[in-house]
Design a protein around this nucleic acid. Structure first.
Length: 393
RNA sequence: GGUGGGGUGGCCGAGUGGCUAAUGGCAGCAGACUGUAAAUCUGCCGGGCUUCGCCCUACGUAGGUUCGAAUCCUACCCCCACCA
């Protein structure tokens, strides 16, 4: 279980296969985000039909509602949400960043003021592991400390070192849970164990260090020293830093990351980010943009972005993207989609979200095929040219 | 015919003498969104220009009062309610 096999690589890009308790994930892969146990707006059948092999859930948000006890009582996140395939839960670490105005960090953990009812919720490395264990995803993520992309070296070092210290606590607690021990800590809770149906859950660490190469290297070294791991994540990117900076960080890490482990670039990205990331050795991606932008009327197409609300599409009879094989493009015109947005019909949000999800999944699928055929360099080059509108024709 | 109420920018609707090119909302237009506090948020929205400013034209129509009027006065036109 949790085996990863690199089938073929071209440059830093790799095509692989990841075995998880709930199934296989062929990489490179995009993982749609289902924060609350649902990929926003989409039916699991639609998500699966679009080609998703694995989706995310969120520890912090599911802890707030409905609460992991409820999820556990209803059979764990897979059964609760009726998603039979692999799942990964984020640890709540990203909320340290995204809810910066609502939390205070200490060595022990993070105190959040719930945006729902104002109550104080504490997340620690231990409780994050316990919640994720109760949720029961195939992969749990370490509770990390994300700093903004503009963070100074000092701040980035702080977050990075804290992430390493928290990683040890995550690992210890996760191991205890896996061993079937209660742990005896203040947050310890053995009742979670008998209810678990799946045999296993693995824990992935997250490399931090901001935009600073030396910190990234230290983070990676420290992370590997605390291993072994079945996979590694790169966090703290796409949080305000320029794209070239993200590329540089990825390049500096690509050669240092263990070849035989899947690499997950957290929170990324847009279609071009996937291609750029795969080029630099990334295997897994997740991003809310597909569904969020979809709800906001922004669609990705093979020739760039389209804002479906624009008047220019009022009487447009063509699909969002003629080159797309998604269920939306198969039968709906831009004019109709625009109408749905203007009329505030929720179907519009769903259809564009579905298109975007499929678009990203297909980018990963196409990249994979190209790598397997030894054609990735050519494919990625022409893909990027076409997407950025610089294709000469 | 009489009495009362009302006519404000595409629509609805604030505003009762200077701080009003005129609050809001809707519609319209443009943009943002990357491990989801987001079906959200931001900007523009009378015309023109050398657009952190200037110049025109504007609150039913026509006059008037006033240093100054969407706001006060007069006449007229139109709408609504009730009475005949």
């Amino acid at each position: 279980m949790f085996e990863f096999t690199v089938l073929r690589s071209e440059g830093a890009a790799r095509a692989g296969r990841l075995a998880l308790p709930h199934g296989e994930v062929l990489t490179p892969a995009f993982m749609p985000v289902g924060t609350y146990g649902a990929v926003r707006g989409l039916h699991p059948d639609e998500v699966e039909g679009a080609g998703a092999q694995i989706i995310l859930g969120n520890t912090y948000h599911l802890h707030l509602r409905p609460g992991e006890e409820t999820v556990r009582a209803l059979g764990g996140l897979h059964r609760f949400s009726s998603w039979p395939k692999p799942m990964l839960t984020d640890s709540g670490g990203f909320q340290v960043f995204s809810l910066a105005g609502l939390r205070t960090i200490s060595e022990q953990g993070v105190e959040f003021t719930s945006h729902i009812d104002g109550s104080v919720r504490t997340l620690t490395p231990e409780s994050s592991m316990e919640i994720q264990w109760a949720l029961g995803a195939d992969v749990a993520m370490a509770f990390d400390h994300v700093v903004p992309g503009q963070a100074s070296w000092e701040l980035a070092e702080q977050g990075m070192e804290q992430t390493l210290r928290w990683l040890e606590r995550c690992k210890r607690r996760h191991q205890q849970l896996a061993d079937g021990q209660s742990g005896g800590g203040a947050e310890g809770w053995s009742a979670a164990l008998p209810h678990r149906r799946t045999a296993a859950q693995t824990l992935w660490p997250i490399v931090q260090g901001g935009t600073h190469a030396d910190l990234r290297q230290r983070s990676l070294d420290g992370t590997l020293a605390r291993g072994p791991w079945t996979g590694l994540a790169i966090g703290g990117l796409s949080v305000g830093e320029p794209k070239p900076v993200m590329h540089r960080v990825l390049e500096s890490l690509a050669s240092a990351l263990p070849v035989e482990r899947p690499r997950y670039l957290m929170g990324v990205g847009f279609p071009d980010d996937l291609v750029e990331g795969i080029t630099r050795g990334v295997d897994l991606f997740d991003c809310v943009a597909a569904t969020r932008n979809g709800r906001h009327g922004s669609a990705w197409t093979s020739t760039g972005r389209v804002n479906i609300r624009k008047a220019a599409h009022r009487t447009a009879d063509e699909p969002l993207d003629p080159a797309c094989d998604c269920a939306t493009c198969a039968r709906f015109s831009r004019g109709y989609l625009r109408h749905l947005f203007v009329a505030e019909e929720m179907l519009g949000l769903r259809l564009v979200s579905l298109h975007n999800v499929r678009f990203l999944l297909r980018v990963a699928e196409q990249a994979r095929s190209a790598i397997l055929e030894g054609d990735f360099a050519r494919w990625s080059g022409s893909w990027l040219r076409r997407y950025s509108g610089q294709e000469d024709r």
